[in-house]
C-alpha cells in the first residue's frame, strides 16, 4: 500500500505562519494582550505542567476533557449504530425515530444546552448528554446510509448459502456498512469535540474549554492561545486515530 507523502506546501505554510507570529510579536507590531508571542505561550505551557490554573493543571484539564468526550462519544456510538441499523430494518422504528432525529439534527447544540442544564444540572451528566446527543445524529445518519447501500446481491448470496436472517445482518450487512459507519463515527467524534469545548465554556469547573474561557475573562491571552493549540492538537489526534482504525478495519474501502 502507498503511504501519502506530506505535501511540502503544508509544511511551508505552517512555518510561514509561525514566522509571521514570531516576527509581528517580536517587533512589537501587535499588543501582546491581543496576541502574545510564542515564547509567552510556551512559558505558560511550562508553568501549567505543574501548577494549577483555572482549578487544575494543564494535564488535569486535558484528562477531564478527553475523558468526558470519550465516554459521551462511546455512548453515542453504542446507541447510534444499533439505532441506525434498526431504523433501516423496521418501519416502526424508523417512523418513531426519524422525526426526532431530523428535527434536532440541524439545531446547534448550544441552542438546547440551557434546557439540558435545567434538566441535568451543570455536572458530568449534563455535558455528556449534550455531547452524546450532538454526536448521535451523524452516527445514525451514516449508519443508515451504510446499511441502505449494501448490495442486494450480497445478501442474496448469503441467503442462498443457507444463512438465516440474523446471520445476514451480522455477517453481511454490518461488515458491508462498516466503511460508512466508521465515517459517521469520525464525523461524530469531531462534532463531540467541538460541542465539548463549547459546553465547557458555559457549564464547567474544569476542562480545556473552561480553561480558555477563564483565561479570556482575565485577558491572559497566552493561556487562551495555549488552550486553542492543545484543543487543535487533540482534534487532529482523534482524526488520525480514526483514520488508522479505518485502514485497519476496512482495508478494502474504495477497492471493491
Amino acid at each position: 500500500m502507498m503511504m501519502k507523502k506530506t505535501n511540502p506546501f503544508a509544511i511551508y505554510t505552517t512555518l510561514f505562519l509561525l514566522a509571521v507570529w514570531y516576527l509581528t510579536t517580536r517587533l512589537g507590531l501587535i499588543n501582546p494582550v491581543l496576541l502574545p508571542p510564542p515564547g509567552a505561550v510556551f512559558r505558560r505551557f511550562l508553568t501549567m505542567l505543574h501548577s494549577e490554573y483555572a482549578g487544575s493543571t494543564l494535564f488535569g484539564h486535558i484528562v477531564s476533557s478527553v475523558r468526558l468526550v470519550t465516554i459521551s462519544f462511546l455512548g453515542a456510538a453504542a446507541i447510534g449504530v444499533p439505532l441506525g441499523v434498526a431504523m433501516e430494518h423496521s418501519r416502526i422504528v424508523r417512523g418513531m425515530a426519524d422525526p426526532v432525529v431530523e428535527f434536532y439534527r440541524p439545531l446547534p447544540p448550544l441552542a438546547y444546552l440551557p434546557l439540558i442544564i435545567v434538566w441535568f444540572g451543570i455536572g458530568f451528566l449534563a455535558k455528556s448528554v449534550l455531547i452524546g446527543v450532538a454526536a448521535l445524529a451523524p452516527i445514525i445518519i451514516s449508519t443508515r446510509a451504510g446499511v441502505a447501500s449494501v448490495p442486494n446481491e450480497m445478501k442474496h448470496a448469503a441467503l442462498s448459502m443457507g444463512a438465516r436472517k440474523v446471520q445476514v445482518l451480522l455477517h453481511v450487512v454490518l461488515p458491508a456498512a462498516l466503511p460508512e459507519i466508521i465515517s459517521g463515527l469520525r464525523i461524530g467524534l469531531g462534532v463531540a469535540w467541538s460541542t465539548l469545548v463549547a459546553g465547557e465554556m458555559v457549564a464547567a469547573t474544569s476542562g480545556l474549554g473552561h480553561m480558555v474561557l477563564t483565561a479570556s475573562n482575565y485577558l491572559e491571552t497566552d493561556a487562551v492561545v495555549l488552550g486553542i493549540i492543545i484543543i487543535g492538537i487533540i482534534a487532529v489526534a482523534f482524526e488520525l486515530a480514526i483514520r488508522a482504525a479505518q485502514r485497519k478495519f476496512v482495508p478494502w474501502k474504495g477497492k471493491a
Binding site: 446481491e153 442474496h156 444463512a163 458491508a176 477497492k255
Partner: peptide, 28 residues
C-alpha cells in the same frame, strides 16, 4: 425461499471484500 440447495453466481460476483478468498468460499 432462498436455500443452500441452489447455489447462485452473480454477474458482479457479490463476494465479501472484507473476507479473503478462502473465507469467502467457506462462508456458507
Amino acid at each position: 425461499s432462498p436455500g443452500a440447495d441452489r447455489g447462485v453466481v452473480f454477474q458482479r460476483n457479490a463476494l465479501m471484500p472484507w473476507l479473503n478468498v478462502l473465507h469467502n468460499v467457506e462462508l456458507g
